[in-house]
Simulated assay, not measured.
Amino acid sequence: MKKLTTAIVLSMSGLVATTAMAAPNDHDRHGNYPNRDVRPVNVIHKDDHHNVWRAGQVVPHEYQHSRYAIDYRAHDKLTKPGRFQKWYKVNGNYVLVNEQSHKIIKVVH
């Protein structure tokens, strides 16, 4: 009888131990570890881009793509770009950009 009781107690303790290990880890959800990496994000709406493009600013990375590049000869109001310069059309604006520094040289609305 003593062996049967010992076997039951050991099996029950094994069952309790496995359920404790399978419990979810909620240590992060108590607010003890504040996230200090949160930075405010400036949201620019599509309609606000005409206010954003200014000479001297750096063109955002998502607009530094060849799909925005245009041929200046197809447009009457654009001048010939200099060396290391390229015209981009973004949201109806024509932006002359230095290809090396990605800074805006000129904006034509």
Rank of each mutant, 00 (worst) to 15 (best):
D47P: 00
D47V: 10
D48P: 01
D48A: 12
D48G: 06
D48E: 09
D48Q: 11
D48S: 07
H49A: 03
H49S: 05
H49V: 12
H50C: 03
H50Y: 13
H50G: 06
N51A: 02
N51E: 11
N51M: 07
N51T: 13
N51Q: 12
V52Q: 09
V52T: 06
V52Y: 12
W53R: 00
W53P: 01
W53D: 00
W53A: 03
W53L: 01
W53N: 00
W53K: 00
W53H: 03
R54S: 14
R54H: 12
R54A: 03
R54W: 05
R54G: 01
A55C: 03
A55K: 13
A55T: 12
A55D: 11
G56W: 05
G56T: 13
G56D: 03
G56V: 05
Q57G: 09
Q57S: 06
V58F: 07
V58L: 10
V58E: 11
V59H: 04
V59M: 08
V59D: 06
P60K: 08
P60Q: 06
P60H: 06
H61R: 14
H61P: 07
H61E: 15
E62H: 09
E62Y: 12
E62L: 07
E62P: 03
Y63E: 09
Y63D: 11
Y63R: 04
Y63P: 02
Y63T: 05
Q64A: 08
Q64V: 05
Q64G: 08
Q64R: 12
Q64W: 10
H65M: 06
H65P: 00
H65R: 11
H65S: 13
H65C: 03
H65Q: 09
S66G: 08
S66Y: 13
S66W: 14
R67F: 07
R67T: 09
R67H: 14
R67K: 10
R67D: 09
Y68C: 01
Y68S: 01
Y68M: 02
Y68D: 06
A69N: 09
A69R: 12
A69H: 05
A69P: 03
A69G: 07
A69I: 08
A69Q: 03
I70Y: 09
I70L: 08
I70F: 06
I70G: 02
I70C: 04
D71E: 14
D71Q: 02
Y72W: 15
Y72K: 01
Y72P: 00
R73F: 04
R73W: 07
R73S: 10
A74V: 04
A74I: 04
A74F: 09
A74M: 05
A74C: 04
A74N: 11
H75S: 07
H75F: 14
H75D: 11
H75R: 02
D76R: 13
K77E: 15
K77S: 08
K77Y: 08
K77I: 09
L78N: 02
L78F: 02
L78I: 01
L78P: 05
L78T: 04
L78E: 01
T79K: 13
T79W: 11
T79N: 15
T79M: 10
K80T: 09
K80E: 08
K80G: 02
K80D: 04
K80A: 07
P81Q: 02
P81T: 01
G82H: 06
G82W: 02
R83D: 14
R83G: 13
R83P: 13
R83S: 12
F84N: 14
Q85C: 01
Q85W: 03
Q85M: 04
Q85K: 05
K86W: 10
K86M: 15
K86V: 14
K86C: 12
K86E: 11
